[in-house]
Design a protein around this nucleic acid. Structure first.
Lengths: 152, 152
DNA sequence: TACAATTAATTTGTGCACAATATAAATAGA
DNA sequence: TCTATTTATATTGTGCACAAATTAATTGTA
């Protein structure tokens, strides 16, 4: 193999060396880990993330929720309608600004905060790393995510 | 706030503290970063990952590809049909075992290996971290992914 | 050789995820 | 005030992602 071929080889993508693929595949792994646990409550993983967001701050608009989750309204609107159909959230137009839709948890939606508590405990047990290590990895991944969104 | 309330609070999920959410949102960020770059070649990010896999080992079955990408055939079959329609891969039943479908790159599919080389270069520039740091993060994420798949 | 069990791929149905577009309300400027 | 622009949601269309069920081929076993 000559020098040029070696140079070319070095730049070519290899699935085993791609950081993006590790993130992509780990995302699927988490989804599959959450799925059966959340299915007991009739929830999907993205729906659970919406509820987690609302549990810490209720009464937000779709846009604010989207900023927290890095999702836009075309993803959230149908998802929120499903949560509304399930009786977990209400969607009401803001009287002060009729463009906005305010999201509020119902009593049942609030109650899931406590009822689903064992889920997050189970997740951290399976992942099996200590809080500090997890925090370090999380910060590193967030830095990458934020770098991408800054440039793009 | 009494001790019980503090204990309860500690266990409740917070989107800002969840490692899984950083992975989930970083995955979307990568997808959005790749999208316009790959659109020039008529590819989606998952389609690109399939091609990357085949570039390093051509002639695999759907099952083998799925094991490499952590995807099952119900995801891959329609994706591979689209790549076939685009003239990038061929799908042929294995004569030795008619249950299997062998995947092979066409000349055009092979050619994309070189033509898309600038894409991965662009990605690493935007992510903007050195190879060693990226490697460390990748290994940590893979360990989490593998821990999940081992238990689930 | 029969025929049950396993395996590989496909099909079906549901739910994200997102670009592009549409709609309607609020705001800004002339 | 009138109209152009901006903003917040919703809609449409395409493509993953996966569980569950289906089909067809192979293997195991009596």
């Amino acid at each position: 193999m000559n020098a040029n071929a070696a140079d070319t080889e070095r730049d070519l993508p290899d699935i085993g060396k791609m950081l993006c693929f590790s993130i992509y595949s780990a995302g699927h792994a988490f989804n599959q880990l959450y799925r059966p646990l959340l299915a007991d409550f009739g929830l999907t993983y993205p729906q659970y993330l919406v509820l987690v967001s609302l549990w810490s701050r209720d009464g937000r608009t779709v846009k604010e929720l989207g900023e927290a989750l890095f999702l836009d309204s075309s993803t959230l609107t149908p998802l929120l309608k499903r949560l509304e159909s399930a009786g977990l959230v209400t969607r009401t137009r803001n009287r002060q600004d009729e463009r906005q839709v305010l999201l509020n948890l119902t009593a049942e939606g609030q109650a899931l905060k406590v009822r689903t508590a064992p889920v997050s405990k189970c997740i951290s047990e399976v992942v099996g790393i200590d809080a500090e290590t997890a925090q370090k990895i999380k910060v590193a991944i967030e830095a990458i995510r934020d770098a991408i969104y800054k440039r793009a």
